[in-house]
Nucleic acid binder design. Structure first.
Lengths: 344, 344
DNA sequence: CTAGGGTACGTAAGCGCTTTCGTAAGCGCT
DNA sequence: AGCGCTTACGAAAGCGCTTACGTACCCTAG
């Protein structure tokens, strides 16, 4: 077999510099034990030769990987693509490579992807998406991550907790609360929630926030109509259909993320329900298109790109005994999809 | 140093099966020279042990990589995220891993990312984005890809040609033509184009299509107002501003991609120009949010996700002497952002 | 002048695979 | 019985790095 690569190897650099492999390796790794002049000469020659270390050989020898695995639900969901953008940005700055996987919102498949990434010996695992209420759902993933970290891997979660790893977490409950308050302030009393799949912590937290806002104003959370479907545009459409059919008195719909809100708006448009005159709609996340929807969407802004960066930053730091939790800010963005409740 | 990994190695499998390393390797790779019974026993044991080959060792030994590098402009641009989704999908089906890079629309940085990917010894490179009119801009990338392919790498381009590699290519000119025709049919005579950066082949091709539609109807393409900015939302806003200020007689704006169209619509909204009553707007690509914009966008549909899959499929096939070009379909989608030209 | 201790560098043993080559066994044929 | 051929497997040489360990050298102190 011919040489796998035509690229210069470390021996080539070492020969040109008339030093041993060990010295060349040390010099390029910036480790000590090499005089400054020799190190400079080696680096000089390496760059002249266009030498770049073979990461496979390097990893095999040292066990230290420089690739980070990122698990998202769907890269073409704007929430996740903004997170991914942040991760990839920072990774590029750090000279790391990002391997990306889609779990397709399926916990079983997600676990499989996680195992695959770990089996591929990535050094860092970043996992986004929502956690599950049922601890049994998370325990397998958690065990996997624990073992991974015990053997020197690093992991961080984005927007999900209960995984026993560092996490960057938006305050979903406070965000939901702000949305609830905003709608109450506008006089809405018949509020429905288009929720993602039941059993997701993100859903539970955001919902709890909305409920608490109602309770704070002396209204029973039982009045809140909650329709579960999933965190997709189609899920939003389905939820809106159900709300319109079964609860025609509703004057405001809280979609628990922007993508669902897009579906909700779409259904309202095709049903010719004027927004916000007849129905107010709010979302959550403030994905970049939220401002361009018809009408532009009132929502809670989350700094997704920054969340991605922060998660990688956390994973890059040495592990602490207790998992860290980094909160993110959130902000109510009022746009044109909300207005005063229609008089009855 | 402790063993880098706690995972079972090939020796472990071999020992349990009481065979040599070579036999175990052959059996798991499905290569011949192993009796069926022995091979089955080895596979059985491997799966019991949860053995997964160390890709670093495997690649180092064989030179065959199983990771594909994908270069996009920005993952949070919906056009690219849909392409990425397709690539990642198919890669997962094939057991390949995807390393993703953002070039940030900067040709220099893109070249750097390309070199980086190749230096990282990916086996397949997929490059998306637009090519450049100036052949000198592409020659460096082309040389890099040529050398890469000569040494056994495989590459494919998505939506760009002139790279000397297999490519999946939408018919940008025909799409532009369809848009031009559509607007002419609606009676528009004062048409402006919000174009991406000058020098991009995508821009030139789509523009040529629009011009040819005008010419076909006996109008001079010189009448076409072309404003160059870039393929972003901000670029669309800027272009729209300029068009409104310098060419107030315009009744239709062709944005050369949907993301720019979003910016155009945003500007028109803030300037209170009614769409389509006073101004028609069209985009290009049909990203998934195009239907949810205000108003929903008339555009040319491109099968981005499928384009991603096709590109990977091409790269997976053995290389042919001449680069293949796989065309993609396109389709005019008429929505609410276009209407009859206002009477003057 | 020698012992002791750094410092700078080289030697060589892996990391966990793949693959070439060698060998032994089994087969049919003359 | 002897030959060549095929088949099934093992031994061992790498792939291109990192790093523990060894060694030569120089400097300072006694």
């Amino acid at each position: 077999m011919p040489r796998a690569s035509h690229r210069p190897r470390l021996v080539d650099v070492a020969q040109h510099a008339a030093v041993s492999l060990a010295t060349a390796s040390r010099a390029l790794a910036g480790r000590e034990g090499v005089s400054t002049e020799v190190a400079d000469r080696i680096r000089q020659i390496a760059s002249e030769l266009g030498y770049v270390a073979n990461p496979y050989a390097r990893t095999l020898a040292s066990g230290a990987t420089s690739t980070v695995g990122l698990i998202v639900h769907q890269v073409d969901d704007p929430y996740f693509s903004e997170i991914a953008a942040g991760v990839i940005q920072l990774a590029a700055e750090q000279g790391l490579l990002v391997q990306i996987c889609q779990s397709g919102r399926d916990p079983g498949y997600e676990l499989q992807q996680l195992r695959h990434l770990i089996a591929q010996r990535v050094g860092i695992v970043l996992i986004s998406g929502s956690g599950y209420d049922d601890p049994r759902m998370e325990s397998a993933a958690r065990a996997e991550l624990d073992a991974f970290q015990d053997h020197g891997g690093r992991a961080a979660a984005i927007g999900r907790h209960a995984l026993g790893v560092d996490a960057v977490l938006p305050d979903n409950e406070a965000g939901g609360h702000a949305l609830g308050q905003h709608l109450m302030d506008l006089g809405h009393r018949r509020i429905a929630v288009a929720a993602g799949s039941a059993g997701l912590t993100t859903v539970a937290d955001r919902l709890a926030g909305v409920s608490s806002a109602l309770r704070q104003r002396g209204r029973s959370p039982a009045d809140l109509v909650v329709v579960h479907s999933d965190f997709t545009r189609g899920g939003g459409r389905a939820a809106a259909e159900q709300i319109l059919n079964e609860h025609p008195e509703t004057t405001a719909i809280v979609a628990l993320n922007d993508v669902m809100a897009m579906g909700v708006l779409s259904t309202l448009r095709s049903r010719r329900v004027p927004v916000p005159a007849r129905m107010s709609v709010v979302g959550f996340d403030d994905v970049s298109v939220a401002a361009d929807l018809a009408p532009s969407l009132t929502t809670i802004r989350l700094p997704m790109t920054e969340m991605g960066r922060t998660a990688l930053t956390l994973a890059l730091k040495p592990r602490t005994t207790r998992p860290r939790r980094r909160p993110t800010g959130h902000l109510l963005i009022v746009r044109d999809s909300t207005g005063p409740a229609p008089r009855t």
